[in-house]
Write a protein that binds this DNA or RNA. Structure first.
Length: 157
DNA sequence: GCCAACGTTGGC
DNA sequence: GCCAACGTTGGC
């Protein structure tokens, strides 16, 4: 069982959007970075991932999703009309993959990026590494636990 | 294989 | 909207 973090811009897909899907479940499509794809392929059913809101008024961790289907070819890469179309990928030799996720729960509150940055024990999180732009990344168990503790604590003012 | 140009990401 | 960091592309 592993832990992960998935980034999404809430203006395109937010945790509220996921909550409205049938069975609160959807595919995590559109990943077009090789390292992120490799992490997607490492995910196993039952793994948990933080749902991170990027490029928003408030950036931070909004909730937890469970991996409910392991990586399979991302059909949006095959569709010339799709924003994420990639001619390098075709059904006989797919390049891009996606997993299915299900909303486990929202966090009690948004745990802000600024809070994560302020915690010394999270200093070596991939998310916080300077210049990091990965949209899919692993999360160490100690970091996962620390963030859940932060959720329980009051929001700093 | 090098590397400049370009596009994207994402915080601020 | 700005811009730094990074990844990708394509000419050579």
């Amino acid at each position: 069982m592993s832990y992960w973090l998935l980034k999404s811009e809430p203006s395109s897909f937010s945790i509220d959007d996921l909550a409205k899907r049938p069975a609160k479940r959807d595919s995590w499509d559109g990943v077009r970075n090789y390292q992120a794809r490799n992490y997607l392929r490492d995910m196993r059913r039952g793994d948990l991932a933080f749902f991170y809101h990027s490029s928003a008024k408030q950036t931070g961790i909004a909730g937890i999703v469970k991996i409910v289907a392991e990586a399979y070819p991302d059909p949006t890469a095959f569709d010339p009309g799709n924003h994420h179309y990639d001619p390098k990928s075709d059904p006989s030799r797919p390049v891009w993959y996606m997993v299915d996720v299900k909303l486990e729960r929202r966090l009690r509150r948004l745990v802000l990026l600024a809070e994560l940055k302020a915690r010394r024990e999270l200093a070596d999180m991939i998310l916080l590494k300077p210049g990091n732009r990965l949209s899919v990344m692993p999360v160490a168990e100690k970091h996962w636990r620390a963030i859940l503790q932060m959720e329980r604590a009051a929001s700093p003012e």
